[in-house]
Design a protein around this nucleic acid. Structure first.
Length: 225
DNA sequence: GCATTAACCACAG
DNA sequence: CTGTGGTTAATGC
């Protein structure tokens, strides 16, 4: 149960962890736990105390706010870190993470993570790169949400799932209509209507959550970004 | 004014 | 949880 993890032999290291030497990887193994989550499981929750950096080795999660007006902030696919902004210099999680598919997660003590940043330049640099990518992605999303109408926002989201998450034109949507609405700032009714209309125009094929993108170019035209 | 967009509500699968 | 229809408020032309 309390056996240490061997991070030296991990084949799904983050690009930052690849910069660690063997000694540091041993230290990392002693200061983290790996936990498997099932689809639908809560990984961490908004408002709770947090002393860990969360590393999503494998799987897909949604980062979201709690409450009646729940917003989906981001959909993330492993490998990548999840909780850096909500853990560094913060005691309380500012958002929740829920598994959309089965996930392998490593919880890493914030202290060892911080010490790596101090003692290993390459590690720190790779963390900055990841945070920069994340910010750019959010800027894009921000523009899409501000400049696009419902068609454009949904098109953007469908392309995002297709290109960034599943890397195929044919996949199952990981979200309900309601959640999709929360993701692109609209209502479940609008999502239903737009999906039905795109289907009737043969831009996509939608059956329940089964989605096939027939004309990605058409979706790109609907979205300004 | 008139048309369009999208939210809100209600009700039926 | 979804799909659809009616209603309505806001916005653009």
């Amino acid at each position: 149960m309390t056996s240490n993890i061997n991070c030296n032999t991990c084949i799904i290291k983050s690009s930052a962890a690849k910069a660690l030497n063997s000694e540091q990887l041993n230290a990392l193994g002693k200061n983290c736990v790996q936990i498997d989550f099932k689809k639908g499981d809560v990984i961490f929750k908004e408002g709770t105390f947090s002393v860990n950096i969360t590393y999503l080795r494998e799987g897909i999660v949604k980062l979201h706010t709690e409450g009646k007006t729940s917003q989906i902030l981001k959909i993330a696919k492993g490998p990548r870190y999840l909780g850096i902004p909500t853990t560094i210099e913060e005691k309380i999680n500012h958002y929740s993470a829920t598994a959309l598919e089965d996930c392998h997660i490593c919880f890493i003590h914030t202290n060892i993570f911080k010490s790596f940043i101090e003692e290993n330049k390459k590690f720190a640099y790779e963390i900055i790169v990841e945070l920069c990518n994340s910010e750019l992605e959010l800027f894009q999303k921000c523009v899409s949400r501000t400049k696009n109408n419902v068609y454009g926002r949904l098109s953007h989201a469908l392309l995002f799932f297709s290109e960034k998450i599943y890397e195929t034109d044919n996949f199952n949507l990981p979200l309900s209509r309601e959640e999709l609405g929360n993701f692109i700032n609209t209502t479940r009714e609008s999502v239903s209507r737009v999906l039905a209309e795109l289907d009737s125009k043969k831009v996509i094929q939608i059956k329940g959550r089964q989605l096939k993108i027939l004309k990605p170019e058409a979706l790109k035209e609907l979205s300004v970004i």
